[in-house]
Simulated scan of single mutants.
Amino acid sequence: MNREQISDLVKQMNVDTATGPVDTRIQKIIVRLVTDLFQAIDELDIQPSEVWKGLEYLTDAGQSNELGLLAAGLGLEHFLDLRADEVDLQAGLTGGTPRTIEGPLYVAGAPESVGFARMDDGSESEEVETLIIEGTVTDTEGQLIENAKVEIWHANGLGNYSFFDKSQSEFNLRRTIFTDQVGKYVAQTTMPVGYGCPPEGTTQALLNKLGRHGNRPSHVHYFVSAPGYRKLTTQFNIEGDQYLWDDFAFATREGLVATAVDVTDPAEIQRRGLNKPFKFICFNFKLLKDVENAPPAEVERRRLCA
């Protein structure tokens, strides 16, 4: 069948059969996607067994709660970022900290503080190095933004996230810090490590078919927002990780690589209230001012709420 014949068939089945109110946006999207799917089946000679195996795979991925991971692994989430970059550029929105993927592991409701927060519960203090993350939030002209909301989350020393890893305490390595009067935030936490997709999971099963690994470098996630500014979804990946530029989720971008510096000076250790050397990362953010008729910066999606 050619494209025109397929389009007519899809219209007959999904448009002409309507007998009630129609969401025209949903209808338009479904018609396009089904048409493209039918054409792919025809052109690639996808067999019925392959179609049903694909549907079974999506069912299994949904039941194992891995569709968000799959979206990152196949580049869908990165593509949405690249497309949003183009839309921002066309709207004249430039100069801010680059965006990158959110991933599937955010949890709303983390404890809040102003200026400083300790993110870890102390359970890994003897095994994992302490990390101090410090930075400022400004606009693109360098004006400091007081009371900006900096939401931070990352994995523990085993590459696992609280709530998803039931062995961790609630909100371990998750905090919300509002910047102080000079636009500064400071987080005391532990060094995150990279992690891989569950080796027996549905995402890794598909990546195996593609000859790809499912590993991520060490990284820290952020939401940064303030009244009058566009919400930023981003993360930094840490220099030195073997997967820094080979992230299976395609999240590493220029401007989003951080260097962890070893701090051994006794005076600085004491000033930080610590009793041993630590790692230090400085990471600043530049927010774009919101403008009328700009594309939305807030992404609506289902997220876990504790």
Rank of each mutant, 00 (worst) to 15 (best):
I177F: 01
R303T: 13
E124Q: 02
A267Q: 01
Q181F: 11
G211V: 12
S64R: 11
L173W: 04
F285M: 10
P227E: 12
R230G: 04
Q242D: 13
D42A: 09
Q12F: 14
N208S: 04
E77C: 10
T100C: 08
L58E: 03
V128A: 03
D121F: 09
R25V: 14
K28T: 15
T176D: 01
W153Y: 04
N275M: 11
P266A: 15
E239P: 00
T19M: 06
A249V: 15
T203F: 13
R271Q: 08
D8F: 13
W245G: 03
Q242F: 14
T140S: 14
K286D: 05
L44N: 09
F116R: 00
E300H: 06
L158N: 12
R3P: 07
L74R: 08
D265R: 05
A148K: 11
A117L: 02
R3E: 15
F223K: 10
K209T: 13
L74F: 15
E50D: 13
P266H: 04
E4P: 01
P227A: 12
T24A: 10
N14C: 11
N293Q: 15
T130C: 06
L131H: 06
V182A: 13
E141I: 06
T97S: 12
K289W: 09
V220W: 07
T100Q: 01
R118F: 03
V114N: 05
M13S: 03
N293F: 10
L80W: 03
T203P: 03
T24E: 05
R303E: 15
N147C: 07
